[in-house]
């Protein structure tokens, strides 16, 4: 059924052969209360309504009108995109963790190295130190105290756990040596004179009795006519320092083999 079919009704208008087509349209548009005009108006209203509704529908629900295959494709794409983004997020998160723990490890290593450097500095005589300890002044009125006797005092202090030792203005370290003659003692190449003033950081309750052991270091000093009594101090300061030479021959054993 088509409108181009020949009209079947007998009341069809005569073909307006000689009239201009514009006039035909104008006549048709002229409002008349005829049945055909009312019906055409009604149908046109229906059409306009449907067109607007469909356009709105199309704008509102873009996805709902797509065929199933298209929807599956879009869903697939979205899933793939999600997977990609999740992978990327996981990789970035891992990198972030790595960086965080890396900087944390670095900070911890730096802290440990700093602490170790302080400890080594105190033990090796590179840094001044303070803390509880004893002061011991050994007088030598006869000038008979030998370097060996002073060295025995040092050994006794080391045995008792002394951590930092100063004799007069000389910081005593692991390589310290006593030479010279009685009354003219030389420590590490520096002459020291009586009274010999020891400043020692360590446990006073251990070092004091250790020096006073019968037949020990102080007893030996007294045999040479010297005198001295360790004085416990809550706070003593070892201010003399010593430059630590770089080892010329020794190098650290690699950690994994040690």
């Amino acid at each position: 059924m088509s409108v181009t079919d020949p009209p079947g009704s007998p009341d069809a208008p005569e073909p307006p052969d000689r009239r201009s087509p514009w006039r035909t349209i104008g006549q048709a548009l002229r409002p008349r209360g005829s049945r055909s005009q009312l019906l055409a108006g009604l149908l046109c209203a229906l059409l306009g309504f449907a067109v607007v509704v469909q356009v709105r529908q199309n704008q509102v629900e873009g996805l709902s009108r797509l065929p199933q295959s298209e929807l599956v494709r879009i869903l697939d794409q979205a899933n793939q995109r999600t997977d990609d983004l999740e992978r990327e997020a996981a990789a970035l998160e891992a990198t972030r963790q790595e960086l965080l723990s890396g900087s944390g490890q670095q900070a911890a290593a730096l802290e440990a190295a700093t602490a170790a450097a302080e400890t080594q500095g105190i033990l090796s005589g590179r840094l001044p130190a303070q803390g509880p300890g004893i002061e011991l002044v050994i007088s030598d009125p006869r000038g008979d105290i030998t370097p060996i006797a002073l060295f025995n005092v040092l050994e006794e202090l080391r045995n008792a756990g002394a951590e930092a030792i100063q004799l007069d203005d000389v910081r005593i370290v692991a390589s310290s040596y006593f030479t010279g003659a009685p009354g003219a003692v030389v420590v590490d190449g520096v002459p020291v004179e009586a009274p010999y003033r020891w400043t020692v950081i360590g446990d006073p309750d251990t070092m004091g009795p250790a020096l006073e052991i019968p037949g020990g270091a102080l007893a030996q000093i007294r045999n040479y006519g010297g005198s001295g009594t360790p004085q416990s101090r809550l706070q003593v300061e070892v201010t003399a320092t010593r430059a630590v030479p770089e080892p010329r021959f020794a190098t650290p054993l690699p950690a994994d083999e040690g």
Binding site: T4, P6, P15, A28, S36, L39
Partner: peptide
Amino acid sequence: ALLDGIFDDRVF
């Protein structure tokens, strides 16, 4: 159909 002069409301 209108321009052809064969417009018929029933057919339309």
